[in-house]
Design a protein around this nucleic acid. Structure first.
Length: 116
DNA sequence: ATTATGACTCCCA
DNA sequence: GTGGGAGCCATAA
């Protein structure tokens, strides 16, 4: 995996992401990439670079997610929970909100996608 | 100054 | 459907 950068003005980007996460209603989910698109690129950044790294930057924002935000409603573009220690807890929280998983752990985005 | 590092996504065999 | 590579330069230690 190639190296990647954290976004310029990382703090501001993270805060934009967090503000969006706070608006996701219960029972809905959004992929990292879409979340980053809604947050928008940092000022002065070219779209090519942004598109290449936006999803991982959104992931970086979630890694530093403040308490009180519904972090569990953010998933990957395949409709699955990104592997990590708290993945099991994330699934439990989503299921408690009525989000359904198929037999391979995927969420139906047609039903549960939050478009903003 | 140098090095390791990350909640990802797309495209093509 | 699966698996691997590319994307490209900020921060912290």
């Amino acid at each position: 995996m190639p190296r990647y950068t954290t976004p310029p003005n990382q703090q501001a980007f993270h805060e934009s992401v967090w503000a969006l996460v706070a608006e996701i209603p219960a029972g809905k989910v959004i992929p990292y990439g879409r979340l980053a698109q809604l947050a928008g690129p940092p000022a002065g950044m070219d779209r090519r670079t942004f598109d290449a790294f936006a999803a991982r930057w959104a992931g970086g924002a979630m890694a530093n997610c403040p308490d009180g935000l519904p972090w569990w409603r953010v998933i990957n573009a395949q409709g699955k929970i990104s592997p990590r220690e708290s993945a099991g807890r994330q699934r439990e929280l989503l299921e408690a909100e009525g989000v359904e998983f198929d037999d391979r752990g995927r969420i139906d985005l047609e039903t549960h996608l939050w478009t903003g």
